[in-house]
């Protein structure tokens, strides 16, 4: 205490000691800003992520699948909510965050700009997309910002059924008719590369990574998590008796990991820029829900005010 260490050094020392930073603690402005950006992107992804799967609720082919899908998508709303709450502890309101999303200023995971074309997509999304998401999320349970870490713990606990649900769905198709098998393989083919891109650019092209790692709001590099994902999926797909659309995928004894082919970042960048197949309609759907909900929210507030007056 007697030596004059800067606030910033003390802050970093706390992080290095694996202490959690809480909302009212002093933090560098850049830490706050980066966190708001990261947490809100994550929240937006959950909420926009409801749409591609929501697309199949009314067409789910059995009552059991229908309740599972509904419950899963509902969880995503919950996860968005937990994450918005975590972001709100940093001094920004949910409405401000929504506005950033709806105006196109904020980003969300590009994966949700791809269309869900068949029922098998519900399996592929659960298995691959949630599988990739959970790799990130498990790592974030130990991130330095307390509210974010706690939200992640809750999310991971709830997510655990999502990936299983997707895998089980594909497994059922894989044991079904030739048409069902083809449907499953087609879905895997379409979702594989976009899922791989969910981990973000290669480490060499990832501008914010180093600082975020130092702040422990990112615990593993993009490429590390991507490799972990490939190693997991490459094994699981054997159980499905299907293939991944990557001719270069093979086990590398020396590395103790699977090798895989190069990712086509041109497509990734285009989708990121807004040129994915569904960018416009996803945002339009969220905007519509928000705008058409305005009178409902206003009514509820007006009623609450009246009730308070009459007490």
């Amino acid at each position: 205490m007697s030596t004059q260490v800067s606030l910033e050094e003390r802050f970093q020392a706390r992080i290095d000691a694996e202490q959690k930073i809480e909302p009212k603690d002093w933090m560098p402005e850049a830490y706050r800003k980066t966190l708001i950006r990261q947490i809100s992107q994550h929240a937006h992804s959950e909420v926009v992520g409801m749409l591609p799967e929501g697309n199949w609720i009314t067409r789910a082919p059995s009552l059991r699948r229908k309740v599972a899908l509904l419950a899963k998508i509902q969880d995503e709303a919950g996860h968005g909510l937990y994450l918005y709450s975590a972001a709100e502890t940093l001094g920004i309101s949910r409405e401000e965050l929504y506005n950033e999303l709806l105006s196109g200023k904020a980003k969300y995971s590009s994966i949700f700009n791809y269309p869900t074309l068949t029922w098998a997509d519900m399996g592929a999304v659960g298995w691959l997309v949630d599988g990739a998401a959970i790799m990130n999320q498990v790592a974030l349970c130990k991130c330095s910002y307390g509210p974010y870490a706690r939200a992640m713990v809750r999310v991971c606990k709830e997510e655990s059924f999502h990936q299983r649900q997707g895998f089980e769905l594909l497994l059922t198709l894989s044991k079904g008719t030739p048409e069902q098998r083809a449907m499953a393989q087609d879905a895997i083919n379409r979702w594989w590369w976009p899922s791989m891109m969910m981990f973000g650019p290669n480490d060499s092209d990832s501008p914010h990574s180093a600082q975020s790692m130092r702040w422990k709001i990112k615990r593993y590099s993009n490429d590390t998590l991507r490799q972990k994902f490939v190693d997991m999926i490459a094994e699981q797909i054997k159980v499905l008796n299907m293939t991944l659309p990557d001719p270069d995928l093979r086990w590398n004894e020396e590395r103790g990991h699977y090798d895989f082919g190069a990712i086509d970042w041109t497509e990734f960048n285009e989708v990121l820029k807004g040129n994915g197949p569904c960018n416009r309609e996803r945002l339009a759907a969220r905007r519509k829900a928000w705008e058409e909900g305005a009178w409902v929210r206003e009514a509820a507030m007006a009623h609450a005010a009246k009730r308070q007056q009459s007490v």
């Binding site: 309101s93 949910r94 409405e95 506005n99 709806l102 928000w290 705008e291 305005a294 929210r297 206003e298 509820a300 507030m301």
Partner: peptide, 8 residues
């Protein structure tokens, strides 16, 4: 997107 409609 009126501000007064945000729930507390």
């Amino acid at each position: 997107m009126a501000n007064h409609s945000e729930f507390p």
